[in-house]
Simulated assay, not measured.
Amino acid sequence: MVAAPQAGVPGARRPSASRRRSWVGWRFVGPFVAVFALVFLAPIGYSIYLSLFRTQLIGGTAFVGADNYTEVLGDAQFWSAFGRVAVFLAVQVPIMLLLALLLALAIDSGRLYGAGFFRISVFLPYAVPAVVATLMWGFMYGTRFGLVGNINEAFGISLRDPLSPDLVLASIGNIVTWQFVGYNMLILYSALRVVDPALYEAAEMDGAGQLRIIWAIKLPALRGALSIATIFSIIGSFQLFNEPSVLKSLAPNAITSYFTPNLYAYSLSFAGQKFNYSATVAIVMGVITMIIAYAVQLRGLRKES
């Protein structure tokens, strides 16, 4: 019988230090990896799995491969919903970021009286749940029972219905801007606070005015923060769901079941029982959002370099 090698004896096997360190690292990141796989990777994988099948009343569930994706790419309702959120993105996001930029610059200037209170007041709407904010604005938009109706009655005028088909997208944009302008303002203001005050002092000694300081110092310092805020806003625009979903009962003639891609996927799944096609719509929309957000990120990195 051969004795096993012991410590201190030539030929004895010892676990390497690098191997021990690697296991220690996995013990730290293991719980996060498990949760990440469970709540992020697993739903995506299951959605992809669902998108490869089709459930029919006659014949049951059958594997169809990429047929669902081909159908989505030719779906007029999907592209109508995508075009609507694309217009929303092109109009609402620049307006919101411009307002956030102006507010951040005003607070950072040091010339605003009660800047702390003003900052909290602007950020406060972000703390309001989206459903509550939409219900509040929806009732204010009402022409028979809300603020618009009260104004019409008090002044004897006839303002257009904010929830009409022509104005409902702008009304939703107003709600989203009210909710998130403070959030984006805080991102930009935080970026301004890390600028070295010596740069401002040097610029003032050289005779630079406030507009010159903003253009030459503050705006370049905000490029990274603006890129982040833009990416978050793009993702949020393509995920538009709460506002049209809540307002649908108040404006049934203006908001259809395919008003936005997310609302379309929801309607397909829970109203139309088309789970496989709904998963396909969600995946296609997710890929489009990822591509656009990544393109914006690359452009932001090029500008910074």
Rank of each mutant, 00 (worst) to 15 (best):
L102Q: 11
P10I: 01
L226Y: 06
Q210I: 09
G146Y: 03
P197M: 00
F28E: 00
R27C: 13
R160K: 10
L186M: 14
A198L: 07
Y189Q: 01
P162A: 00
G11D: 04
P162Q: 01
E243S: 02
F40W: 12
S249L: 10
W23R: 14
V9S: 07
R160M: 09
L102N: 08
G45Y: 06
M185F: 03
F63D: 01
I214L: 10
D75W: 08
F63I: 09
R54N: 12
M140F: 13
S16Q: 12
G45Q: 03
A254R: 09
W79Y: 10
L199H: 14
Q239F: 04
L101T: 14
R54P: 10
D75N: 15
Y277Q: 05
A191F: 02
L101E: 05
I95H: 01
A265S: 15
L135I: 15
D206Q: 07
R119C: 02
D166C: 00
L159T: 13
L199E: 11
V296S: 10
A265E: 09
Q179A: 10
A3Q: 15
A208G: 03
P165K: 03
L102G: 15
E304I: 14
I151K: 08
M136H: 00
A3H: 14
V194W: 03
F28V: 14
S171Q: 03
L219M: 13
Q92W: 00
I235P: 13
W215N: 08
M285Q: 14
G149N: 04
P252V: 00
S305G: 15
T134F: 06
V93K: 11
Q6I: 15
W215Y: 11
Y277D: 02
S16F: 02
A251W: 03
